[in-house]
Write a protein that binds this DNA or RNA. Structure first.
Length: 137
DNA sequence: GCCAACGTTGGC
DNA sequence: GCCAACGTTGGC
């Protein structure tokens, strides 16, 4: 199973809203690279939910419940979205500062490509981040 | 097809 | 609020 990280600004869509909504269409991705990652997601894949701008930390884990389909918020028909569901919060949120100073997380896309909103997370990185956050399945 | 101008994201 | 990074647009 592949692992991912998705970003959201809590001002527009926060973890609390993610938890409150049963199923959330992950719409509005308008970047070719991020869109390709959305298309690669499989039902059941897990993703960290990261708060950008405010907090700048991983706050929860979500699951892909529907694979890529045309984004209803897109008029051009070029972009896709997936459906996500909250799994559980990360007990000890992992901050960007934590990630940056951790040698085991060197090369992670979050720090290399700060503007990318959907990115894959390697198995070793996923395990390490889960450990840092005290998150267990 | 190149590249300058511009817009957006996101860290600080 | 500023600015760096970087994607997109449009003139040539």
């Amino acid at each position: 199973m592949a692992h991912w990280l998705v970003k959201s600004e809590p001002d527009s869509f926060s973890w609390d809203q993610m938890v409150a909504n049963k199923t959330e269409p992950w719409t509005g991705v308008r970047n070719a690279q991020a869109s390709n990652f959305l298309k690669a997601m499989k039902k059941g894949d897990l993703a960290f939910f990261y708060h950008s701008n405010i907090g700048k930390e991983i706050v929860g884990v979500v699951r892909v419940v529907r694979e890529a389909y045309p984004d209803p918020s897109d008029d051009t028909g070029r972009w896709v979205c997936v459906d996500m569901q909250a799994v559980s919060p990360v007990p000890k949120p992992v901050t960007l500062a934590d990630i940056k100073e951790d040698a085991k997380l060197e090369g992670i896309a979050l720090t290399r490509q700060s503007r990318l909103s959907v990115m894959p997370i390697s198995d070793p990185h996923w395990k390490h981040l889960a450990k840092l956050g005290g998150w267990k399945k």
